[in-house]
Amino acid sequence: MNTLDMVSAGALALLGLILLILLILLFQYLRLRGIWQMMLVCRTATRWARIWEMENKELRSALRAEKAHVEQLKRKMVLLQALIPTP
């Protein structure tokens, strides 16, 4: 094997190493892109969960107010029925 053949073999090995490193970087990129997409989905889901939580809180508050109003109307009805003379 002469010097030119050794240089060619070294260059070929170096190109193979560069290709291997590029493949590893490509797989890392694809994996990170998948993680990034998952993070975006989680962020969106968290945002919607907060919105639904706020809506549920508002609805529970409105329901409590409505129940209190119904109880108040029932008490008024009992008082008004007590005022009406029964024959």
Rank of each mutant, 00 (worst) to 15 (best):
A65L: 14
P87C: 00
L80I: 14
Q81S: 13
L19A: 14
M54A: 15
K74A: 09
L22G: 01
N2Y: 02
R31V: 05
L4M: 11
S8R: 10
L12M: 04
L12A: 14
Q81L: 12
L19M: 05
W48S: 07
R33Q: 07
M77S: 08
G34H: 05
K67A: 02
G16T: 00
N2A: 09
A62M: 05
A9I: 04
M38L: 07
S61I: 13
M39V: 07
L73Q: 08
L73A: 07
T3N: 10
A62C: 05
I18D: 15
R60E: 04
W48D: 06
L4F: 15
A11D: 07
R64D: 08
L23C: 05
M39Q: 15
E71P: 03
L4Q: 14
R64H: 12
L12N: 05
R43G: 03
L20K: 11
L4S: 09
W52E: 13
A9D: 09
L25A: 11
K76W: 10
I51L: 06
R33W: 01
S61E: 15
R75H: 04
A13I: 11
R60G: 00
Q37A: 01
C42E: 15
L19Q: 07
P85D: 08
L15M: 06
L83M: 09
W48M: 07
R50I: 05
V41A: 14
L63P: 01
K76A: 10
I18Y: 14
V70R: 02
I84E: 12
M6K: 07
M1L: 06
I51P: 01
L30W: 10
N2D: 04
M6P: 00
M38S: 12
I24N: 03
T44W: 13
R75I: 01
P87G: 03
I24R: 00
Q37E: 04
M1G: 11
A45Y: 00
R31Q: 10
R64M: 02
L12T: 09
E58C: 04
E55C: 02
L79S: 05
T46E: 13
L17Y: 07
M38G: 12
I84S: 09
A65F: 02
G10P: 00
E53F: 03
G16Q: 06
S8N: 13
T86I: 12
A9V: 06
L19I: 12
L26K: 04
L40I: 05
L12R: 05
R75S: 04
K76G: 03
Q28V: 09
P87M: 02
L63N: 11
T44L: 15
L26G: 08
R31F: 07
D5C: 04
I84L: 12
L23E: 04
A68C: 08
A82K: 12
D5L: 09
Q37S: 09
M1E: 04
R47P: 02
R33I: 03
L30F: 11
P85S: 13
Q81N: 11
A49W: 02
L80C: 10
L12Y: 08
L40F: 04
P87K: 01
L30K: 07
G10S: 08
Q72M: 08
Q81M: 15
L32W: 11
A62E: 00
Q81D: 07
R47D: 13
P85E: 07
R60W: 00
V7M: 14
P87H: 01
